[in-house]
Design a protein around this nucleic acid. Structure first.
Length: 578
RNA sequence: CGGGCUGUAGCGCAGUUUGGUAGCGCACUUGGCUGGGGGCCAAGGGGUCGCCGGUUCAAAUCCGGCCAGCCCGACCA
């Protein structure tokens, strides 16, 4: 029996609302967006908000069921919290300001600030304040509920929206050890969920970003429609978001250089590349790139090798701030007295200088002199620059050596973030007063973790991964209907009768069946079935019935086989169960 | 928020340069012929041309403002 749908059901296409389109929608770029609209699963209401039509609702319901089964299996208790949040809990955690424009805010009739929930740490922590003893821990709480985020740029259909459903769970423990255990439990549950969704999700090290906390793993599904970049080593399996990824940087052998830096004229030179070709300049890997960023209103200098790119999230993480932004031209001039293109950190004090480790110990380097059209050569970093903090700041690129194993190289590819798990720690419990007494009668904040999966994004990711030039190819586990029965001649009574009999047999075995009884041309029905992506299709026509057979088509492989009418239910049941 | 582009029937589009009262394909309705890969014939229905204002005898078309959507970038638990 199929676990996913113990109660099979039959739908007649002539009664169904599945508005398929003959042409691709003009505004859809991503494959999943194009196919989900065209196959009649979704319609856009506004930017970042979609109507889920019946076929998509069925898929979403199956995804939801798989997720809740796996979270229940690790001890989850399901809740349903409000989507409307009072501002004060967000103020208590400090995120009322941090979230900025991404939070939808409304004012109620009394003039009070209210938010539409974008995540629920604050609310679960509020509920958790009723816990009073360590004996009540651990707890694992979750819900499946709508989140609202006013994304600056919704895109790619269901992949990036402003209103979506998320399964978010929260672990509550007395200590870090308990958190680690629940984190591991989620890690396993997530791998099982993605396996059942037929998504090849790679767990990767990630930045915790504005969530805070110590540990963070993203589950990434490789796809060109993805918005994240993942560095992956096929040899050892190392995988990390480029926001965190590291790689081996071959050492550059420097000359010792002069005793002090030498300033020299570089008229018109404003870029690393220009200085490479300038007489008396230097190769990019012998230059120091100096970037000015603003972190929490404070300027900082970020130093990377001339041929390396700064990873902004790494800088933000190093500084312990939510985000950093490049300084404006005026801010740069005010700070260093020169324009971008002639900047350097030599002799700079009173400013935080964060440098990439690839620069450690380098000598005889070239960098800007904080005076337009002038650079220094012969810069020895240890001697000439006061570095506040040495960290990894550079963004890895494909083809570089893996840091985790001796002989692997890194591949960098786009991926969809299908799930994300965080070790939050005590931040929210402390802010909202969720404390319990430990065995010594001492009050301690609850240690929390939070774990999210976006339902519609996963639905879209499945389409991104499972489709061909004819349409979607749903995995059996989440197909809106696992079988379509195409009645070739709708007016042929024996065909309709045979289709109903087969549908009844499959339904009794727990499968969801769509009978295409529409009075359409066969070609239309075949094309629609392929577009929508039923895993198996049975063709019932007078030609076959005369010989006592129907045709079974496997959507994925395209394999067709004639099966005796009396055997087809068992045959297809076998295919679906295998 | 910067850059690019687009709003005309349910969907895909033409018409805008050069102002003259809206058109094509698909879809839809009715009837008929068909019937194993988007078939054919005939007759129909459907549009405040994104919105507001202006110019003009006359605006889808020209001018001004606004709104919405898409793509790239910034941004993004």
């Amino acid at each position: 029996m199929p676990l996913d749908s113990p109660d099979g059901a039959t739908m007649r296409w002539s009664q169904a609302f599945i508005p398929t389109l003959r042409d691709d929608p003009s505004d859809a770029e991503a494959v999943s967006h194009r196919l989900l609209v065209r196959a009649g699963f979704i319609r856009q209401l506004m930017a970042g908000s979609y109507s889920i039509l019946p076929a998509a609702f069925r898929v979403r319901a199956k995804i939801e069921k798989i997720i809740s089964e796996e979270i229940d299996a690790i001890g989850g208790q399901q809740f349903l919290l409000g989507a409307l949040h009072p501002s004060d809990v967000w103020r208590q955690s400090g995120r009322w300001d941090v979230m900025g424009d991404e939070m939808f805010r409304i004012v109620d009739r009394k003039g009070a600030d209210v938010a539409l929930g974008m995540t629920h740490e604050e609310i679960f922590a509020t509920v958790a304040s009723e816990l009073s003893s360590y004996k009540q821990l651990p707890q694992l709480w979750y819900q499946i509920q709508t989140k609202f985020r006013d994304e600056p740029r919704p895109k790619s259909g269901l992949l990036r929206v402003r209103e979506f459903t998320m399964k978010d769970s929260y672990s509550l423990d007395i200590d870090q050890d308990g958190l680690d255990k629940q984190f591991e439990a989620h890690y396993g549950a997530y791998l099982r969920i993605f396996a059942r969704l037929d998504l090849d999700a790679i767990p990767v090290e990630a930045s915790s970003g504005a969530m805070g906390g110590s540990g963070s793993v993203e589950f990434m599904v490789r796809s060109d429609a993805g918005e994240d970049l993942v560095a992956h080593c096929a040899t050892c399996g190392y995988a990390a978001n480029v926001e965190r990824a590291e790689s081996v940087v071959p050492a550059v052998i420097d000359e010792v250089g002069p005793d002090t830096p030498e300033m020299f004229d570089t008229p018109g030179v404003r870029t690393i590349a220009a200085l490479e070709t300038f007489p008396g300049g230097a190769a990019a890997d012998r230059q120091i790139k100096t970037l000015v960023y603003i972190a929490d209103d404070t300027p900082v200098l970020a130093l990377v090798r001339g041929d390396h790119a700064l990873q902004e999230q790494k800088l933000a993480d190093a500084l312990g701030v939510g985000e950093v932004r490049p300084a404006q031209a005026e801010e740069i001039r005010e700070l260093l007295g020169a324009d971008a293109g002639s900047l350097g950190a030599v002799g700079v004090s009173d400013v935080t200088v964060v440098a990439d480790r690839a620069l450690q110990g380098r000598t005889n380097m070239t960098t800007g002199a904080n005076s337009d059209d002038k650079h220094y050569r012969g810069v020895s970093i240890k001697r000439d620059i006061s570095v506040t903090q040495w960290v990894s700041l550079r963004e890895v690129t494909a083809g570089e050596r893996c840091t985790n194993c001796s002989d692997g190289t890194l591949d960098v590819f786009r991926a969809i973030e299908c799930g994300h798990i965080f070790k939050l720690g005590t931040k929210y419990a402390e802010a909202l007063g969720a404390t319990v007494l430990d065995e010594n009668g001492k009050s301690r904040p609850i240690v929390m973790g939070s774990y999210g999966i976006g339902l519609e994004r996963n639905l879209a990711a499945i389409v991104e991964v499972h489709h061909d030039d004819k349409g979607i190819v749903w995995p059996v586990s989440v197909a809106p209907w696992q079988v379509a029965i195409t009645v070739v001649q709708a007016k042929d009574e024996p065909s309709q009768t045979a289709a109903s009999t087969i549908a009844g047999g499959l339904e009794a075995k727990g499968w969801d069946v769509m009978v295409d009884d529409r009075n359409e041309r066969p070609g239309v029905k075949f094309a629609d079935a392929e577009l929508i992506g039923f895993p198996y299709r049975i063709t019932v026509g007078s030609r076959g019935l005369d010989a006592g057979t129907v045709e079974v088509v496997d959507r994925r492989s395209g394999t067709r086989s004639d099966v005796a009418l009396g055997d087809v239910v068992d045959h297809v049941h076998g295919l679906l169960s295998g």
